[in-house]
């Protein structure tokens, strides 16, 4: 059953995924197993996206299916949706209000099991710092579409250094014009070209389970 659900959401089949989840719940399947199956399927979606078999619409639609499915499951979960993979504070940096990419990454992170604290758009550096202090999140994800965002990202990284938190927090950036040059400029730890890569990087940065790839860097000293 779980394998079917993983395959169905991986195929972005909304109707059959939701029907399978409802059926499994009625049959008494452990809700945590269903959540895990959905996450497994979402992981396959990410792999197909990286292989350019899937595109942005597939990410958006599969995340929407995931959210609908977990809404069905949540009432049956007594102890939450399983262990968190860690906390992520995410936002579009100060001076920029573009949120499509940020919202997709936030949703994909939630689908992957992270506790996501979304600060929205036009987020000042102090707000990122404050949220990390409040939640203890280990990863900050900054988004920006405008070239103005480069300076805001740099100021946010500096704000964490000024607060004495830079060594305890990983920071990644993303958005249309972001690349290696921008990463060097703002002093974050990694950048992601697309939502799927952001998820992979989050795993590498938080879990340290994967070797850091070519798009991560040592923290500046």
């Amino acid at each position: 059953m779980s394998e079917d659900i993983a395959a169905l959401i991986a195929d972005v089949d909304e109707e059959r995924t939701l029907a399978a989840v409802a059926s499994a719940l009625d049959a008494g399947t452990d809700p945590l197993l269903l959540v895990e199956a959905l996450r497994h399927g979402m992981s396959s979606v990410g792999e197909r996206f990286e292989a350019r078999e899937y595109f942005l619409p597939d990410l958006i639609l599969s995340a929407d299916i995931f959210n609908q499915a977990t809404a069905l499951i949540e009432p049956r979960l007594e102890g939450g949706s399983g262990p968190s993979r860690g906390g992520v504070v995410i936002g579009t940096v100060q001076g920029d209000i573009h949120d499509i990419g940020k919202n997709i990454v936030a949703t994909m992170l939630r689908c992957s099991g992270y506790d996501v604290h979304d600060l929205g758009v036009d987020v000042p550096p102090a707000a990122f710092v404050g949220k990390v202090k409040e939640t203890g999140a280990g990863l900050v994800a900054m988004s920006g579409l405008l070239t103005f965002a480069f300076d805001s990202m740099k100021e946010t990284v500096q704000a964490f250094a000024d607060a004495g938190l830079r060594d305890s927090v990983k920071m990644m950036i993303g958005g249309g014009p972001v690349n290696e040059t921008v990463l060097d400029y703002c002093g974050a730890d990694a950048y992601g070209k697309d939502p799927s890569e952001a998820i992979r990087l989050a795993g590498a940065l938080i879990d340290a389970a994967l070797p850091l790839g070519s798009q991560t860097r040592s923290r500046p000293t």
Partner: peptide, 9 residues
């Protein structure tokens, strides 16, 4: 000519 290049290069 990419925007980041015009800003940072």
């Amino acid at each position: 000519v990419p925007p980041d290049m015009l800003c940072l290069a």
